[in-house]
Simulated assay, not measured.
Amino acid sequence: MKVDNIFDNYSVNKKALSDYGFIKMKDGYCLKKDLENFDFYVKFIIGNNTFDVKVFEANGEEYLPFYIKKAGGSYSKKIKEAVELMINDIICHCFESINIREELLRYLKKKYDTNPNYPWKSDPTSITLKTNETNKWYALIMNIPYKSLKIEKEGKIDVLNVKNKPAKIEHLIDFKHYFPAYHMNKKYWISILLDSTIDLNSVINLLDESYEIVDLKK
């Protein structure tokens, strides 16, 4: 089972991996650990932006029901739940959060004295950012499912919407980091995936441009 999407929001601490019990291999780190209360063991293999989890029976045969997403047996479900707890413990002890949202908010507070607004009680993670002069949105940060952007990954990711000129928006869209605006006018807005691979300086430049565009409309 691949847990690679963890690297969108976290970076691995290699020293912490060693302290946890991972063994340094040629292409990364490996940990073999017994699955408590089951006659199974688990291998966790962490490489360069890869996190692979494999489950084996005591005789060394791979336990294939673990990889079937909708395997409904209660036994395989218990196995999956136990492995999920192990994965979460590894993330807690060996990974560090990459909070691009907070970095951007600190920048905007310092440069524009912008305070985030939380306008929707039903969606407390989404924030709007307004210019001081026009009191109009120049940016929006949301936490949305990957699949909302037609990305075949489980879970959610922070997305930043900013305003720009249509020609530049068309040039930027690559369906990897930059997407047609989610839930906004796609001609004048663009969505930016705030994962660990995005160039932060480019995002900051686009935020500045968005502020200037909205601020001109006094």
Results as ranks from 00 to 15, higher is better:
110 K>H: 10
72 G>L: 06
133 E>W: 09
21 G>W: 08
92 C>S: 12
43 K>T: 13
178 Y>V: 09
81 E>C: 02
218 K>P: 05
32 K>S: 14
201 N>L: 11
61 E>C: 07
21 G>Y: 08
201 N>P: 00
10 Y>G: 02
149 L>H: 03
149 L>C: 07
62 E>C: 04
42 V>W: 05
198 I>A: 11
218 K>H: 12
4 D>K: 00
166 P>H: 13
166 P>I: 12
79 I>H: 00
12 V>A: 08
119 P>N: 10
161 N>S: 12
90 I>N: 01
68 I>V: 15
83 V>P: 01
132 N>S: 13
160 L>R: 08
66 F>G: 00
218 K>N: 12
191 S>V: 11
60 G>A: 03
109 K>A: 13
107 Y>R: 02
145 P>S: 10
202 S>E: 15
206 L>A: 06
146 Y>W: 07
65 P>F: 01
41 Y>T: 04
111 K>M: 07
123 D>F: 10
133 E>F: 14
42 V>H: 03
11 S>C: 09
73 G>W: 06
203 V>F: 01
56 F>Y: 15
114 T>D: 06
30 C>D: 05
185 N>F: 11
107 Y>L: 04
162 V>S: 04
91 I>F: 01
19 D>F: 10
30 C>I: 15
54 K>A: 05
109 K>P: 02
38 F>P: 02
216 L>H: 13
102 E>A: 08
85 L>F: 05
91 I>A: 03
65 P>A: 00
187 K>D: 03
169 I>P: 02
63 Y>K: 10
67 Y>Q: 03
75 Y>Q: 11
49 N>L: 12
1 M>N: 06
95 F>I: 07
213 I>H: 06
8 D>F: 09
188 Y>M: 09
